[in-house]
């Protein structure tokens, strides 16, 4: 499993706007580069990132992004959201070769 770093401000004030930062280990191979033998390496990128906010049974998509070959390895994504209530943030990366990773983090407002 790839290493992911998720940064959420601790205990944000209710209704404040917070920045979420996510960083994941991935080669983001473009599919255009030759290797040492001159053979073009197959594309291997993350295609999509999604963040959902889960409270009980309710799961809302709050941010998503499509990723392309020009994005660097170990892609870093930052976005904002309004911290309205306690819940769980669910982060999902999906990509080539069946790449799929899910991370969760608790959001606790004060």
């Amino acid at each position: 499993m790839a290493r992911a770093l998720i940064t959420i401000p601790p205990n944000p004030k209710r209704n404040s706007i917070i920045e979420i930062r996510v960083l994941i280990q991935h080669p983001m191979e473009t599919g255009l580069r030759p290797d040492a033998e001159g053979k073009v390496q197959p594309r291997n990128i993350i295609r999509r990132f999604e963040c959902r906010f889960i409270v009980g049974d309710k799961s809302d998509l709050i941010f998503s992004a499509e990723l392309f070959p020009a994005i660097s390895a170990n892609p870093y994504i930052a976005f904002h959201l309004r911290a309205t209530q306690n819940g769980t943030l669910n982060f999902q990366w999906t990509g080539d070769n069946g790449f799929a990773q899910t991370e969760t983090a608790a959001l606790v407002v004060v």
Binding site: R3, A4, L5, T7, L23, I24, Q25, A73, N74, Y76
Partner: peptide
């Protein structure tokens, strides 16, 4: 540190 990609290696 929350933007530094080298932190992925540090965590490993």
């Amino acid at each position: 540190d929350s933007q530094n990609p080298a932190m992925l290696w540090v965590k490993d």
